[in-house]
Design a binder for these strands. Structure first.
Lengths: 207, 207
DNA sequence: GTCTATACGACGATAGAC
DNA sequence: GTCTATCGTCGTATAGAC
């Protein structure tokens, strides 16, 4: 019971928490909330079933935390793009790149998970509203970059929030479809951003 | 046991089948497969729980049939657009309109349901492949219209299949997002088709 | 902090009466 | 063809030993 030990315990607890969250993110997004058993999560994290409830109140509790994590990460990503030392176009290119980078499927899974959450009946309405609010934060961040780009002359006119929504819709729609087909489209940042740029390259799709 | 009676029985059976399919479509897409109970489906169709198994082998059996129904409907819709007596642009406008028409949420739910099916572990791999194949049929139909539009000079250059995928991704992404937000974007056919048209209206988004 | 064993409820599926 | 009653299983959550 020395301070030293308490600290160690806390470290272990934090580490286990993170492991369970990671496992849950992976499994929820692959199989959906209802189809994922608590024992799936614990076995993936190499813990016993019973121990789960020392770390989370319930399966639903963990679910909501995972959704929040995803959105938090995305908001941070947009913030990182905003703070980059480049033009607005460069920022959008970077953001689009990293969204599609790594294991492509991971991004897809996360996106689907958020959508599922919005339509799930395992989550109460206030929490859903919170999710929508956080998503809108991300949209606003992107809208801000687009606004910059408009002033630089790179991007087409129009309400930045609306353009941001269009951009996200296209990017995510492509992500979802791409992850499923055997021969993915050669998804290029240029093509996704094409809809935003002012017309100088109408033949771009042929590249 | 007269022929007359047999016919009546068949009619009743068909009608119940359809009712159950409709209920299932609604519930699966709103709540997901796992979260939808067989009793939910039957009570929505105003039948008893036990009777369900006179019409379908299992819950999973019905699930696959519902997914097939959705895709079949969509393929028919694309075919109907193709056969319309208008320019390719007119066909795409019509298709986009009807996709977003009616109860908007209905379209969203269907789309999400197909996506969920592709990632579900309640469906075996051959069936998933079949789903992808059917989806590609629809994409090919749209690609055909786009090809027409390119020759008419309405649409930008590029691989039609790829453009069709982009179009669907954007349309569905918007649909999903729009259904959730309280104040939906005034989703206009023009805006969705903007990415396909040759550049003559870069300020369209401001309308 | 970790585990095994178990209580308890929910749901898919079946049986059998009408 | 339709219903109610019931079985069997699975999964969440808890209890209690180490």
């Amino acid at each position: 019971m020395t301070p030293k030990n308490e600290e160690q315990f806390k470290d272990i607890r934090d580490q286990r928490q993170q492991e369970l969250r990671r496992s849950a993110l992976k499994l929820f997004s692959q199989k959906g909330y209802a189809a994922t058993k608590v024992s799936d999560i614990t076995s993936n994290a190499k813990l016993s079933h019973g121990l789960f409830y020392h770390y989370f109140e319930s399966k639903e509790d963990l679910y909501v935390k995972v959704i929040r994590d995803i959105l938090q990460d995305f908001i941070k990503l947009v913030a990182a793009a905003t703070e980059r030392n480049s033009t607005a176009l460069g920022k959008m290119e970077w953001l689009t790149d990293v969204t599609h980078a790594g294991s492509i499927r991971e991004g897809v899974y996360r996106h689907i998970l958020v959508l599922q959450a919005l339509y799930s009946d395992h989550i109460n309405e206030p929490t859903k509203s919170e999710i929508v609010t956080r998503y809108k934060e991300a949209v606003s961040g992107i809208a801000h970059i687009i606004h910059e780009g408009q002033q630089e002359g790179y991007f087409i006119d129009g309400d930045p929030e609306e353009l941001a929504t269009y951009h996200l819709s296209l990017a995510h729609g492509l992500l979802i479809w791409n992850a499923r087909t055997d021969r993915p489209l050669a998804l290029s940042t240029d093509k996704v951003l094409r809809q935003l740029k002012v017309n100088t390259d109408k033949g771009l799709m042929n590249e």
